[in-house]
């Protein structure tokens, strides 16, 4: 069998089911057998390698499960534009893996040619919106496909803001035709940190553009230089998903309808069973949403 033949097993879109982020400690379990989860997501930058076992393993897993490629290094919000070499390397990864979805963030990480290894906040201004849209256009052109952009979590903001974060994102989606990766944990974290209403955020984003939802856990941290402002929420992907975030997932699914839901975990990575149990909870939320919508139709 040729390489071209082994590649076609799991083509097609990511299903509207629960998936998990594929992380190093769980790789062996996924290699040994197909795990009870609808799909997996990887960080694209971890697979930009000339050779070695890492890529072989991913090719093996993708024969069992659909794979989504989630970028963490493109820096769509950079004023200096995108790195053309990085775009080329990503394109060649996507050509090889044929991911069901490709996503990136509404943030920046590159300045002065340095990659700052974080998803840093943008000011919500017309200038930043123009730059973001120009970069999304370039990425979609280089990849030859539509991408999803993820709403960020952040700890500080810039003033004066010319629009809300959700209006900024809605406008980027509308101008570029890209889709939205709605991270409901990020909404919860930023709503707390910046004092806005998560429900207003949900109502302000274009539901029809949502192609994927992320859920994750976060940490609560007392600010050492705090002036009585209360704890700050830190989006560390290092804890189980908490109840308010599950509630936001339910609310989002009620508005948007069933779509792929990913459980993200990057720190304090638990045994695979624990992660799969969270994915099973997400699947129950998806099932409940499908049932509700069927009932709604009958009532109507």
């Amino acid at each position: 069998m040729t390489a071209a033949h082994t590649r076609v097993d799991c083509l097609g879109p990511i299903p509207a089911t629960a998936g998990v982020g594929l992380r190093h400690p769980h790789i062996d379990a996924f290699q040994e057998r197909r795990q009870p989860v609808g799909w997996v997501e990887v960080h694209s930058e971890n697979y930009l390698v000339p050779g070695g076992p890492r890529m072989r393993v991913l090719e093996k897993i993708r024969a069992d499960l659909p794979v989504s490629c989630h970028g963490v290094g493109l820096s769509l919000g950079s004023a200096e534009g995108l790195d053309e070499d990085h775009l080329r390397r990503l394109r060649s990864l996507f050509d090889r893996i044929e991911p069901g979805l490709v996503s990136e963030h509404v943030s920046w990480s590159v300045a002065g040619g340095s990659y700052l290894n974080d998803l840093l906040p943008l000011p919500y201004t017309q200038e930043a919106l123009d730059i973001l849209c120009r970069n999304i256009d370039r990425a979609q052109e280089a990849f030859g496909r539509r991408i999803l952009i993820e709403n960020p979590s952040s700890y500080l903001a810039f003033a004066p803001a010319e629009m809300t974060e959700w209006a900024f994102i809605a406008e980027a989606v509308s101008r570029t035709g890209c889709g939205l990766l709605l991270d409901v944990n990020n909404i919860h974290v930023s709503a707390h940190n910046h004092g806005f209403d998560a429900a207003e955020y949900l109502a302000g984003v274009p539901g029809e553009a949502v192609g994927e939802i992320h859920i994750a856990g976060h940490a609560e941290c007392e600010n050492p230089e705090n002036s009585g402002a209360g704890p700050v929420l830190i989006d560390d992907h290092g804890h189980p998903v908490i109840e308010p975030v599950w509630a936001l997932l339910d609310a989002a699914l009620r508005t948007i309808g069933p779509c792929p839901v990913l459980v993200e975990r990057d720190m304090n990575i638990p045994p695979l069973e624990d992660l799969l149990a969270e994915a099973a909870s997400a699947q129950r939320a998806l099932d409940a949403c499908a049932t509700d919508r069927t009932l709604d139709r009958h009532v109507a």
Binding site: L116, N117, D118, L120, P123, Y155, L156, A157, F158, A159, P160, N193, H194, C221, N223, P224, E225, N226, S227, A229, V232, I234
Partner: peptide, 26 residues
């Protein structure tokens, strides 16, 4: 920063911390 006012400047340490901690792990 860059002429813009920073809301929550006392939280800048979180970014500074993430930067050195994540690269230390790498």
């Amino acid at each position: 920063l860059g002429g813009a006012g920073v809301i929550g400047p006392e939280r800048f340490w979180i970014y500074r911390n993430n930067y050195v901690a994540s690269l230390k792990s790498a």
